[in-house]
Protein backbone atom coordinates (compact mmCIF):
# COMPACT_ATOMS: atom_id res chain seq x y z
CA UNK A 1 0.00 0.00 0.00
CA UNK A 2 1.37 3.41 -0.88
CA UNK A 3 1.72 6.18 1.65
CA UNK A 4 -1.17 8.17 0.26
CA UNK A 5 -3.44 5.13 0.39
CA UNK A 6 -2.43 4.61 4.00
CA UNK A 7 -3.58 8.12 4.80
CA UNK A 8 -6.84 8.06 2.87
CA UNK A 9 -8.09 4.76 4.20
CA UNK A 10 -8.97 6.73 7.35
CA UNK A 11 -11.34 9.67 6.90
CA UNK A 12 -10.10 11.47 10.01
CA UNK A 13 -6.47 11.01 9.10
CA UNK A 14 -7.27 12.47 5.69
CA UNK A 15 -8.70 15.52 7.47
CA UNK A 16 -5.57 15.85 9.61
CA UNK A 17 -3.43 15.58 6.47
CA UNK A 18 -5.50 18.24 4.76
CA UNK A 19 -5.03 20.57 7.74
CA UNK A 20 -1.27 19.91 7.72
CA UNK A 21 -1.05 20.82 4.02
CA UNK A 22 -3.27 23.83 4.46
CA UNK A 23 -0.98 25.26 7.14
CA UNK A 24 1.93 24.92 4.72
CA UNK A 25 0.23 26.51 1.72
CA UNK A 26 0.48 23.17 0.00
CA UNK A 27 -3.11 22.07 -0.23
CA UNK A 28 -3.74 22.19 -3.96
CA UNK A 29 -2.01 18.88 -4.69
CA UNK A 30 -4.24 16.88 -2.37
CA UNK A 31 -7.26 18.87 -3.36
CA UNK A 32 -6.62 18.14 -7.04
CA UNK A 33 -5.99 14.48 -6.34
CA UNK A 34 -9.33 14.18 -4.55
CA UNK A 35 -11.18 16.12 -7.20
CA UNK A 36 -9.68 13.96 -9.95
CA UNK A 37 -10.62 10.84 -7.97
CA UNK A 38 -14.20 12.05 -7.45
CA UNK A 39 -14.37 12.94 -11.13
CA UNK A 40 -14.07 9.26 -12.05
CA UNK A 41 -17.39 8.56 -10.35
CA UNK A 42 -19.27 11.14 -12.40
CA UNK A 43 -21.79 10.26 -15.00
CA UNK A 44 -20.23 10.33 -18.47
CA UNK A 45 -22.50 13.22 -19.46
CA UNK A 46 -21.08 15.42 -16.69
CA UNK A 47 -17.45 14.80 -17.54
CA UNK A 48 -17.00 17.37 -20.30
CA UNK A 49 -18.05 20.28 -18.15
CA UNK A 50 -16.29 19.08 -15.03
CA UNK A 51 -13.01 18.32 -16.77
CA UNK A 52 -12.91 21.87 -18.11
CA UNK A 53 -13.67 23.25 -14.66
CA UNK A 54 -10.90 21.16 -13.12
CA UNK A 55 -8.52 22.33 -15.82
CA UNK A 56 -9.38 25.97 -15.16
CA UNK A 57 -8.95 25.55 -11.44
CA UNK A 58 -5.64 23.67 -11.32
CA UNK A 59 -3.86 24.26 -14.60
CA UNK A 60 -4.41 27.82 -15.71
CA UNK A 61 -1.66 30.27 -14.86
CA UNK A 62 -2.91 32.76 -12.29
CA UNK A 63 -5.36 30.34 -10.80
CA UNK A 64 -4.96 30.37 -7.05
CA UNK A 65 -4.71 26.58 -7.09
CA UNK A 66 -2.35 26.18 -10.04
CA UNK A 67 -0.39 22.95 -9.71
CA UNK A 68 3.35 22.88 -9.95
CA UNK A 69 3.79 20.73 -13.04
CA UNK A 70 6.02 21.13 -16.03
CA UNK A 71 5.14 22.96 -19.20
CA UNK A 72 4.91 19.86 -21.41
CA UNK A 73 2.55 17.95 -19.10
CA UNK A 74 0.30 20.95 -18.85
CA UNK A 75 0.25 21.40 -22.61
CA UNK A 76 -0.46 17.70 -23.23
CA UNK A 77 -3.42 17.86 -20.88
CA UNK A 78 -4.70 21.05 -22.46
CA UNK A 79 -4.57 19.45 -25.92
CA UNK A 80 -6.32 16.36 -24.63
CA UNK A 81 -9.12 18.37 -23.05
CA UNK A 82 -9.61 20.62 -26.06
CA UNK A 83 -9.48 17.93 -28.73
CA UNK A 84 -11.17 14.91 -27.24
CA UNK A 85 -14.28 14.33 -25.30
CA UNK A 86 -13.61 13.78 -21.63
CA UNK A 87 -13.26 10.25 -20.32
CA UNK A 88 -12.82 8.85 -16.85
CA UNK A 89 -9.05 8.58 -17.37
CA UNK A 90 -8.54 12.17 -18.58
CA UNK A 91 -6.53 13.17 -15.49
CA UNK A 92 -4.99 9.78 -14.68
CA UNK A 93 -1.42 10.56 -15.65
CA UNK A 94 -1.18 13.87 -13.85
CA UNK A 95 -3.10 12.58 -10.89
CA UNK A 96 -0.51 9.85 -10.60
CA UNK A 97 2.36 12.33 -10.91
CA UNK A 98 0.82 14.50 -8.21
CA UNK A 99 0.43 11.48 -5.96
CA UNK A 100 4.08 10.61 -6.52
CA UNK A 101 5.00 14.20 -5.75
CA UNK A 102 3.06 14.20 -2.47
CA UNK A 103 4.69 10.93 -1.53
CA UNK A 104 8.17 12.34 -1.98
CA UNK A 105 7.61 15.89 -0.73
CA UNK A 106 4.78 16.40 1.77
CA UNK A 107 3.97 12.95 3.12
CA UNK A 108 7.41 12.15 4.61
CA UNK A 109 7.18 15.47 6.49
CA UNK A 110 3.60 14.77 7.51
CA UNK A 111 4.47 11.36 8.93
CA UNK A 112 7.06 13.05 11.16
CA UNK A 113 4.84 15.95 12.15
CA UNK A 114 3.28 16.65 15.52
CA UNK A 115 -0.13 16.73 13.83
CA UNK A 116 0.30 13.12 12.76
CA UNK A 117 1.78 11.96 16.08
CA UNK A 118 -0.97 13.65 18.06
CA UNK A 119 -3.64 12.01 15.95
CA UNK A 120 -2.02 8.59 16.26
CA UNK A 121 -1.93 8.92 20.04
CA UNK A 122 -5.41 10.26 20.63
CA UNK A 123 -7.29 9.30 17.45
CA UNK A 124 -9.12 12.59 17.79
CA UNK A 125 -9.00 15.50 15.40
CA UNK A 126 -9.36 19.17 15.96
CA UNK A 127 -10.84 20.26 12.66
CA UNK A 128 -13.16 23.20 13.31
CA UNK A 129 -16.82 22.17 13.36
CA UNK A 130 -17.88 24.71 10.85
CA UNK A 131 -14.98 24.20 8.50
CA UNK A 132 -16.52 24.81 5.10
CA UNK A 133 -13.29 24.25 3.21
CA UNK A 134 -13.79 22.93 -0.29
CA UNK A 135 -11.23 20.22 0.32
CA UNK A 136 -13.09 18.97 3.38
CA UNK A 137 -16.14 18.67 1.13
CA UNK A 138 -14.06 16.69 -1.36
CA UNK A 139 -12.88 14.36 1.37
CA UNK A 140 -16.51 13.71 2.34
CA UNK A 141 -17.41 13.06 -1.28
CA UNK A 142 -14.38 10.81 -1.68
CA UNK A 143 -15.40 8.62 1.24
CA UNK A 144 -19.00 8.52 0.07
CA UNK A 145 -17.89 7.45 -3.43
CA UNK A 146 -15.55 4.87 -2.01
CA UNK A 147 -18.30 3.41 0.13
CA UNK A 148 -20.65 3.24 -2.84
CA UNK A 149 -17.82 1.67 -4.83
CA UNK A 150 -17.35 -1.14 -2.32
CA UNK A 151 -21.09 -1.79 -2.09
CA UNK A 152 -21.46 -2.29 -5.83
Amino acid sequence: MTQLEQIIKDRNLALVFRQFLYNRFNNENFSFWLEAENYKYLDKSEMDIRSKAIFAKYFLADSKYELNINFQDRKDLEDKINKNSATSDTFDRIQNDIKKHMETDAIPLFLKSDDYKKYKESQTISVPDRDRSVTVGMIEEFFKNRQLGTQN
Binding site: L21, R24, N26, N27, E28, N68, H101, A106
Partner: peptide, 9 residues
Protein backbone atom coordinates in the same frame (compact mmCIF):
# COMPACT_ATOMS: atom_id res chain seq x y z
CA UNK B 1 16.02 15.94 -6.24
CA UNK B 2 12.61 16.33 -4.63
CA UNK B 3 10.50 19.19 -5.89
CA UNK B 4 9.24 21.42 -3.07
CA UNK B 5 5.71 22.82 -3.08
CA UNK B 6 4.26 25.09 -0.44
CA UNK B 7 6.28 26.45 2.47
CA UNK B 8 8.53 24.31 4.66
CA UNK B 9 9.84 25.55 8.00
Amino acid sequence: RVKTTGIVE
